[in-house]
């Protein structure tokens, strides 16, 4: 009887926590299932594709009132990876990301707007090379549900896809203008675990 009672409490807790995910909940980014990718034009020939391998952060997601949601992201600039060691060293140098002087790229939301059934805009302050400028992420909410794999013990996972355009010149990253594109297409795919 005691076992049954405890089991019922456990089930109630699990479903209870799933239920509360519908209100404002805090999520922590899962680095194993988060990708930050950028594309930038290279002399008009093609787009160089790169990624930042270290993005961390958290967000508060209120599915019922999206405007209450907030996001804070931190990218380690030195984690830039374009699959070419020499180019990555150059990207880390003072010509581009200047990682020794400015180790972090940060984004902090100031406003979240719902634009469609599963879409929204996250407007916030993007800081690159110590310069803070407003930036907008176009976000698609993919899903939020308990993780189906037992290893995760039923944790609620939320998934989002974000897209943005970032003009590097706005942040004083002027090297290679004319050859290397001014505007980067930014793609962020995020999975985050409810805390």
């Amino acid at each position: 009887m005691s076992f049954l009672k405890n089991s019922l409490i456990a089930v109630a807790l699990v479903f209870g926590s799933a239920g509360t995910a519908l209100s404002a909940d805090t999520f922590k980014i899962d680095p194993a299932h988060t990708n930050t990718v950028f594309l930038v034009k290279h002399f008009g020939y093609s787009n160089v594709v790169g990624r930042f391998n270290d993005l961390s952060g958290s967000f508060v997601f209120d599915q019922e009132n999206v405007a209450n949601s907030t996001v804070e992201l931190v990218i380690k600039a030195s984690s830039v990876d374009t699959n070419h060691q020499k180019r990555d060293d150059h990207l880390r140098s003072p010509d581009f990301l200047n990682v020794e002087e400015f180790p972090e790229i940060t984004f902090k939301s100031t406003k979240v707007e719902k634009t469609g059934e599963n879409t929204g805009k996250i407007i916030g302050d993007l800081t690159i090379l110590g310069q803070t400028k407003p930036a907008t992420l176009d976000v698609t909410f993919n899903t939020m549900k308990p993780h189906p794999i037992p290893f995760y013990k039923g944790v609620i996972v939320a998934g989002f896809s974000a897209r943005a355009k970032v003009n590097r010149i706005d942040y004083g990253m002027t090297y290679g203008q004319g050859g290397i594109g001014d505007v980067l297409d930014l793609i962020i795919e995020v999975e985050a675990h409810q805390q």
Partner: peptide, 14 residues
């Protein structure tokens, strides 16, 4: 090469 740097400057290059 770099145009007039912003004030206050943030980066060493500025």
């Amino acid at each position: 090469a770099f145009s007039v740097p912003p004030f206050p400057p943030r980066a060493a290059s500025q």
